[in-house]
């Protein structure tokens, strides 16, 4: 899988936001779509906002992930019209995708807990 993380937007030049680990983007996309259908740009914004701007989503990678999920049949897509009357391609969660989200979420929780245990109690955060 291409590991292309793009350039960063200029608004926050030297930011310390984290590039997404591979695989986590898929999970976040699925999570975003739980609340309803959304277009690519909306998904990118939502992920950024919900992670309190910790995560930066490279838009090119986002579309690659969207294609991948669409091919796997976890999400569906159709052209529609956005709130401000722009034509856009809307993605929504399929039944299969919903199942996967549950599965992946618990996987991720276990992983996060395990890593947290190894790293020990939280001490530094800047």
């Amino acid at each position: 899988m291409a590991a292309y993380w793009g350039r960063m937007p200029t608004r926050k030049p030297d930011d310390d936001r984290l590039a997404l680990m591979q695989g986590t983007l898929d999970l976040l996309i699925l999570r975003t779509l739980v609340t309803g259908r959304c277009h690519g740009q909306g998904i990118a914004r939502t992920i950024g906002r919900q992670s309190e701007e910790v995560f930066f989503v490279d838009h090119g990678s986002l579309y690659l992930a969207l294609q991948r999920l669409e091919e796997k049949g976890w999400i569906g897509a159709e052209w529609g019209v956005s709130e401000n009357n722009r034509r856009a391609r809307f993605y929504s969660l399929t039944e299969k995708g919903r199942e996967r989200l549950v599965e992946k979420t618990s996987q991720w929780r276990r992983l996060a807990r395990a890593i947290g245990t190894i790293l020990g109690p939280e001490e530094q955060e800047g």
């Binding site: 277009h39 690519g40 740009q41 914004r45 579309y63 294609q67 956005s82």
Partner: peptide, 22 residues
Amino acid sequence: RKRTPADFAEEIRAHLQLEADE
């Protein structure tokens, strides 16, 4: 091939417009 490159290009165009709107 599920989608044509033209379809994908249009999606990107739409994305850039939405982003610019924001």
